[in-house]
Amino acid sequence: MTVKTKEEKYNAYVKQVTPTTNMWLNICKAFLVGGIICTLGQLITNWLKSGGLNQEDTAAWTSLALILLSVILTGLNLYPKIAKFGGAGSLVPITGFANSVVAAAIEFKKEGWVFGVGAKIFTIAGPVILYGIISSWFLGLIYWITQLF
């Protein structure tokens, strides 16, 4: 029991002396960067639509364009700099997902195409895919149940 209180006391003390980030500033930066990425997506969408593409194809091409952009920026080592500034603003959009896949691919290429890139490309994105699919399955289930009545 005494050990536990000592640990708790120390952890509380550590928390007190460890500098923290300014949450509101971070939120503003995330809003700015996330907003820019989304606006860019909207611009691509509008441009494609004005060229006569239907809604479904426009959505697909917009995603592809943003993914390509993120892949190129990751390869040029620019995306980590954007993420350092923008935090969740660059993490949440599809560009952040692409970055997590490409970063792993670049890093683990040295370990070969099968056990390196093949096995480790989804080390960061894997959980997002797994739990993304599971949650969409649950939502689908809920939707299906509501449609029964």
């Binding site: 995306y79 970055n99 670049i106």
Partner: peptide, 13 residues
């Protein structure tokens, strides 16, 4: 930690 090109934020500590 993470692959170097992965974008994330490091805490001050």
């Amino acid at each position: 930690r993470f692959p170097l090109e992965y974008g994330n934020q490091r805490p001050f500590s």
